[in-house]
Computed example of a mutant assay.
Amino acid sequence: MIAEILPASVVVEAAYDDPPQARLEPAEEAVVAKAVETRRREFTTVRHCARLALGRLGVPYRPLVPGLRGAPSWPDGVIGSMTHCAGYRAAAVARPGDLASLGVDAEPALALPEGVLEAIALPGEQERIGKLLAELPHLPWDRLLFSAKEAVYKAWFPLTGLFLEFAEADITLDPDGTFHAVLLVPGPVVGGRTVGAFDGRWIVRDGLLATAIAVPAAE
């Protein structure tokens, strides 16, 4: 699913269940030694996806131990992003020469719990979501916004090493399957140019939704 909204240069592996052959390296095992079973399965399977994706890219696997703010430590010469939710896990990887950064997120295609939209969305975003819900009520626009915010952060963090608040990116979702995120703080510098916005894509299918951002490498 996520592969459909990313450039062809990105290698994606996904799973809709937890395959029995999925395994962890000892350093990864230590991270989830005391985790509940659901968390452990998600953690294991998404790294199984990453192992397969890196293999297709021709890169040996190394333990993907969460680092600062939980971001995985990808092997040298690789950029990547992972996501997992109920019924879906995916890893996306690429070479730095093709892209500067990646951000992917998947969620159940359900409306957000009451009060969450107001907590994560700017007033203008709330207004736009309200209009979209009125015009196309069969789509979970509020959850799509939340997912897009997650994708923005995942694309932002490897370029800056800084936290990004929900209110520091103003996102416009379009019914054509795209979205535009304007950064409200100084953007990262990529190849000598300051990036002030991210463009992404979204998809909804079979009870799931996904968002993805591929930040172009410097020309």
Rank of each mutant, 00 (worst) to 15 (best):
190 V>R: 03
97 G>F: 12
49 C>R: 13
218 A>K: 06
137 P>L: 10
74 W>Q: 10
136 L>D: 13
170 D>G: 02
166 F>P: 05
67 G>V: 09
134 A>Y: 13
126 Q>N: 05
16 Y>N: 09
69 R>C: 09
212 A>V: 08
97 G>N: 13
154 K>F: 00
50 A>K: 04
160 T>K: 06
102 L>K: 01
137 P>N: 11
169 A>N: 03
35 A>Q: 12
98 D>I: 12
196 G>D: 11
60 P>E: 13
89 R>N: 15
100 A>F: 08
73 S>P: 00
219 E>K: 07
63 P>N: 12
115 G>H: 12
115 G>L: 06
112 L>C: 11
80 G>V: 00
95 R>I: 02
1 M>F: 01
179 F>G: 02
115 G>P: 14
65 V>S: 03
60 P>D: 02
191 G>N: 10
196 G>V: 05
217 A>F: 10
163 F>D: 09
122 L>K: 10
173 L>Y: 02
59 V>D: 10
197 A>D: 14
210 A>T: 03
24 L>H: 13
21 Q>L: 14
4 E>V: 12
10 V>Y: 05
199 D>E: 14
62 R>F: 00
100 A>N: 10
138 H>E: 15
78 V>E: 08
18 D>V: 10
50 A>H: 02
122 L>C: 05
152 V>P: 01
154 K>D: 15
75 P>A: 11
18 D>I: 07
126 Q>F: 00
27 A>E: 15
170 D>T: 07
146 F>C: 08
2 I>Y: 05
124 G>C: 12
49 C>E: 07
176 D>Q: 04
53 A>H: 01
114 E>C: 04
6 L>Y: 00
208 L>S: 05
152 V>I: 07
74 W>P: 09
98 D>K: 08
172 T>K: 01
148 A>T: 06
84 H>G: 06
36 V>M: 07
11 V>T: 12
200 G>V: 05
36 V>R: 08
138 H>L: 13
109 A>L: 01
152 V>H: 03
148 A>H: 08
202 W>N: 07
70 G>Q: 10
183 L>F: 04
132 L>I: 14
207 G>Y: 01
44 T>Y: 06
187 G>W: 08
209 L>D: 07
119 A>C: 02
66 P>G: 12
132 L>Y: 07
184 L>S: 06
58 G>D: 06
68 L>A: 03
64 L>D: 04
63 P>V: 04
138 H>Y: 11
166 F>W: 07
85 C>I: 09
219 E>A: 10
42 E>D: 14
120 I>R: 06
134 A>C: 10
84 H>D: 03
46 V>A: 05
128 R>S: 13
1 M>E: 10
17 D>H: 10
189 V>P: 06
146 F>H: 14
171 I>W: 00
85 C>D: 11
121 A>R: 06
172 T>A: 09
38 T>P: 00
8 A>L: 05
122 L>W: 14
24 L>P: 11
189 V>S: 15
49 C>A: 13
102 L>R: 01
30 A>F: 02
20 P>G: 08
204 V>H: 02
185 V>E: 13
42 E>N: 13
61 Y>F: 12
7 P>I: 03
196 G>P: 10
167 A>R: 15
9 S>D: 07
51 R>G: 04
134 A>S: 15
157 F>K: 11
167 A>F: 04
81 S>M: 01
92 A>S: 11
49 C>F: 11
52 L>E: 12
98 D>H: 12
81 S>G: 02
177 G>N: 04
159 L>W: 01
116 V>I: 15
157 F>C: 03
29 E>A: 15
